[in-house]
Amino acid sequence: TFTSIVTTNPDFGGFEFYVEAGQQFDDSAYEEAYGVSVPSAVVEEMNAKAAQLKDGEWLNVSHE
């Protein structure tokens, strides 16, 4: 299960995956970082959410 939350205070020191406002979700980078295949429906969902981000916001993507 993939989830996401919007934050204005990303923790770059941890093992977190963020999408910056104005960027798209990079499923290849996510797969490389976590060894998890990302279904195309999830990629579309995360890109739709990322498109709604305002300046200074980040989308924190995770999975269980």
Score class of each variant (00 low, 15 high):
Thr3Ile: 15
Pro39Ala: 04
Val36Asp: 04
Gly22Leu: 05
Glu32Gln: 13
Ser40Ile: 13
Tyr30Lys: 01
Gln23Asp: 09
Ala21Glu: 04
Pro39Tyr: 00
Gly14Thr: 07
Gly22Phe: 06
Asp11Asn: 13
Met46Ile: 15
Ser62Ile: 14
Leu59Val: 02
Lys49Ser: 06
Thr1Met: 14
His63Phe: 13
Glu31Pro: 00
Thr3Val: 14
Ile5Gln: 12
His63Leu: 06
Val43Leu: 09
Gln24Arg: 12
Gly13Gln: 11
His63Val: 06
Ser28Trp: 11
Gly56Met: 04
Leu59Pro: 02
Thr7Glu: 07
Val61Asn: 00
Lys49Leu: 12
Glu45His: 08
Phe17Asn: 02
Pro39Ser: 06
Glu44Phe: 03
Gly13Asp: 13
Phe12Pro: 07
Lys54Met: 10
Gln52Ala: 14
Glu32Arg: 14
Val61Cys: 03
Gln23Tyr: 11
Val61Phe: 00
Ala48Gly: 09
Asn9Val: 09
Thr1Cys: 15
Tyr30Asp: 00
Lys54Asn: 10
Phe25Met: 07
Lys49Met: 10
Glu20Gln: 13
Gly13Tyr: 11
Glu32Tyr: 10
Glu57Thr: 01
Glu44Val: 11
Pro39Gln: 03
Met46Val: 12
Glu20Val: 06
Phe17Pro: 00
Thr3Gly: 08
Glu45Val: 07
Asn47Pro: 01
Phe17Glu: 03
Ser40His: 13
Phe12Ser: 06
Glu32Leu: 14
Ala21Trp: 10
Phe2Arg: 07
Val38Ser: 02
Gly56Ala: 02
Gly14Trp: 08
Gly22Lys: 06
His63Trp: 11
Val36Tyr: 04
Ile5Phe: 13
Thr3Lys: 08
Gln52Gly: 10
Glu31Asp: 04
Thr7Gln: 04
Ala51Lys: 12
Gln52Tyr: 07
Gly22Asn: 06
Ala41Arg: 11
Val6Met: 05
Ser28Lys: 15
Asp55Ser: 10
Gln24Asp: 09
Asn60Ala: 15
Phe25Lys: 02
Gln23Ser: 11
Asn9Pro: 01
Asp27Arg: 15
Ala50Asn: 02
Tyr34Gly: 01
Asp11Leu: 10
Phe15Gln: 13
Gln52Asp: 10
Asp27Thr: 15
Phe15Ser: 14
Gly13Ser: 14
Thr1Leu: 10
Asp11Thr: 11
Thr8Cys: 09
Asn47Ala: 05
Glu16Ala: 10
Ala33Gly: 05
Val19Asn: 00
Glu32Ile: 12
Glu45Tyr: 07
Asn47Glu: 04
Ala29His: 06
Asn47Arg: 09
Tyr34Ile: 04
Glu57Lys: 00
Asn9Ile: 08
Tyr18Ala: 02
Thr7Cys: 09
Ala33Thr: 12
Glu57Asn: 03
Glu57Leu: 00
Ser28Asn: 13
Asn9Phe: 09
Phe15Leu: 14
Glu20Phe: 05
Val61Asp: 03
Gly56Asp: 06
Glu20Asp: 05
Gln24Asn: 12
Val19Gln: 01
Leu59His: 02
Ala29Ile: 07
Leu53Phe: 00
Ala29Leu: 11
Tyr18Asp: 01
Pro39His: 01
Glu57Val: 00
Lys49Val: 07
Lys49Cys: 06
Thr8Phe: 07
Lys49Tyr: 00
Phe15Val: 12
Val43Met: 07
Phe15Cys: 15
Gln52Arg: 10
Gly13Glu: 13
Asn9Glu: 13
Val19Leu: 07
Leu59Tyr: 00
Gly22Pro: 00
Thr1Gly: 15
Ala41Pro: 09
Val42Ile: 12
Glu64Trp: 04
Ala33Cys: 14
Phe17Arg: 01
Thr7Gly: 03
Glu44Cys: 09
Phe12Thr: 06
Gly35His: 09
Ser62Met: 13
Glu64Lys: 14
Ala33Pro: 03
Asn60His: 15
Ile5Glu: 14
Val38Arg: 00
Val19Gly: 01
Phe17Ser: 02
Ser62Val: 12
Lys49Gln: 10
Tyr34Thr: 10
Ala50Cys: 05
Glu31Met: 12
Ser4Phe: 08
Ser4Trp: 13
Glu16Tyr: 14
Gly13Leu: 11
Ala48Val: 10
Val42Lys: 03
Leu59Asp: 02
Ser40Val: 13
Leu53Gln: 00
Val61Arg: 00
Glu45Pro: 01
Val43Gly: 03
Gly22Cys: 05
Ser4His: 07
Thr8Glu: 09
Trp58Glu: 02
Tyr34Val: 04
Tyr34Gln: 05
Val6Trp: 00
Val42Phe: 07
Ser37Met: 12
Asp27Glu: 15
Tyr18Leu: 07
Gly56Lys: 02
Gly56Glu: 05
Phe12Gln: 07
Ser4Met: 06
Glu20Tyr: 07
Glu57Phe: 03
Thr1Asn: 15
Ser4Pro: 08
Gly14Arg: 09
Asn47Cys: 05
Asp11Ser: 11
Phe2Ala: 07
Asp27Gly: 15
Thr8Leu: 09
Glu16Arg: 06
Phe12Ile: 08
Met46Asn: 02
His63Pro: 03
Ala21Ser: 09
Leu53Thr: 03
Val6Asp: 03
Leu53Ala: 02
Phe12Gly: 06
Asp11Ile: 13
Ala29Met: 09
Tyr18Asn: 03
Ala33Arg: 15
Tyr18Val: 04
Lys54Tyr: 04
Gln52Ile: 09
Thr7Leu: 07
Val43Phe: 06
Glu32Cys: 13
Ala33Phe: 13
Phe12His: 09
Thr3Met: 10
Glu32Lys: 14
Val43Cys: 06
Ala21Cys: 07
Lys54Pro: 02
Gln24Ser: 12
Glu16Met: 10
Glu32Pro: 01
Glu31Val: 07
Ser4Lys: 04
Val43Arg: 11
Tyr18Pro: 02
Asn47Ile: 05
Lys49Gly: 05
Asn60Pro: 02
Met46Leu: 15
Gln52Pro: 02
Gln23Arg: 09
Leu59Arg: 00
Ser62Phe: 14
Pro10Lys: 05
Glu45Arg: 07
Gly35Phe: 04
Ala33Glu: 08
Phe25Leu: 04
Ser62Asp: 03
Phe15Gly: 15
Gln24Tyr: 12
Glu64Phe: 05
Ser40Ala: 14
Phe17Gly: 02
Ala51Arg: 12
Glu44Thr: 12
Gly35Ile: 02
Asp55Trp: 05
Glu16Gln: 12
Ser4Ile: 06
Asp27Lys: 15
Asp26Val: 06
Thr3Phe: 10
Asp55Glu: 14
Thr8Tyr: 08
Leu59Trp: 01
Gly35Lys: 07
Ala48Lys: 13
Ile5Pro: 05
Tyr30Cys: 02
Lys49Thr: 06
Ser37Gly: 06
Ile5Ala: 11
Val43Glu: 01
Asn9Asp: 12
Leu53His: 03
Val38His: 01
Pro10Ile: 04
Val42Met: 05
Val42Gly: 01
Pro39Lys: 01
Leu53Tyr: 00
Leu53Glu: 02
Met46Glu: 01
Gly13Ile: 07
Ser28Asp: 12
Met46His: 01
Gly14Glu: 08
Trp58Asp: 02
Asp55Val: 10
Val42Glu: 03
Tyr30Asn: 01
Lys54Ala: 11
Glu44Asn: 11
Phe2Asn: 07
